[in-house]
Simulated assay, not measured.
Amino acid sequence: MNIRQYLDSTYLKTPDQAGLTAAENETVVRQFVKEAIDEHFKLIMIRPEMVVVTREMIAKASSKVQIGTVIDFPEGKSSLEIKLNEAQKAVADGADDLDFVCNYEAFKSSNIDLVKNEILNCTRFGLENHKVVKWIIEVAALNNTEIVRLSALIKNLVISNFKEENYANVFVKSSTGFYKTEDNLPNGATVPTIIMMVENAAPLPVKAAGGVRTYEEAIEMIRLGVKRIGTSAAKAIVNGQVADTQY
């Protein structure tokens, strides 16, 4: 099975996180972009400040690889205004997909109106600009009940406020890949988590991000019903190798 069109090849480390200078980190981003172009992956997922450079590289290569970026990453605690400002700049810079971090802490604290407001307004912004919107719910920060409830909340908001033709462009996404867990527990997509998300987000699509490190794991996620897989080891996965990365 050719899984390339399921893969969002991902590099989201800052220079500090990578232990690199800004110039060195940009070189890594460029390597990821070139690889995505060469391998014909669905999308390259990078930080907002790298969207312009990435768009230039893809245009120069006459490639169909799409560009995704993260909004309010990785904690999702910013105001609606900040989220929308970041999204507006990403769109202006040439992003195709906007991966918003949901304010999952507000959700856990039962501040549901705040969460509904940001989901509704940011989703509307993305769809009105003909972009794919993904909502990162950070499953490692949630218990099973919260995963089910937040997935269903996003689904119900989209169904209630947008046309059916838009459903395929609003994803529920598992993880940022940057959440720190206790005792080195998984911080991304697991089979039980993805099953809960797929069952409760449908008909919205699900993106499995974090923890998919082999071709077999990717195939399993696809069979469970995910439409995208976020990974920093996309090439290793398609080549049947085991990735040495957590995301």
Rank of each mutant, 00 (worst) to 15 (best):
N2P: 14
N2A: 13
I3H: 10
Q5H: 10
Y6G: 01
L7I: 00
S9L: 07
S9F: 00
P15I: 08
Q17S: 08
G19H: 02
T21L: 05
A22D: 07
N25M: 01
N25S: 05
E26T: 10
E26D: 15
T27S: 11
T27A: 14
R30Y: 10
Q31I: 05
K34M: 11
E35Y: 09
E39W: 01
V51Q: 06
K60I: 14
I67C: 09
G68T: 09
D72R: 03
K77T: 13
K77H: 15
S78Q: 10
S78K: 12
Q88W: 09
A92C: 08
G94S: 02
A95P: 05
F100I: 02
V101M: 08
S109Y: 14
S109D: 15
N111P: 14
R124S: 03
F125Y: 04
H130F: 03
H130S: 00
W135N: 03
I137A: 05
T145R: 14
E146Q: 13
E146K: 04
S151A: 06
L153S: 04
L157M: 12
V158E: 12
N161E: 07
E165A: 15
E165D: 11
E165P: 10
Y167N: 14
A168K: 15
F171P: 07
S174D: 01
S175I: 03
S175E: 03
F178Q: 15
F178C: 12
L185I: 12
N187D: 00
P192V: 05
T193S: 13
T193R: 11
I194T: 04
I195F: 14
I195D: 14
M197S: 12
M197Y: 14
E199K: 15
N200M: 11
A201C: 02
P203H: 07
V206I: 15
V206R: 02
G210Q: 07
R213H: 01
Y215P: 12
E216C: 13
L224S: 12
R228C: 07
G230H: 08
A233E: 07
T245N: 12
Q246A: 08
Y247S: 12
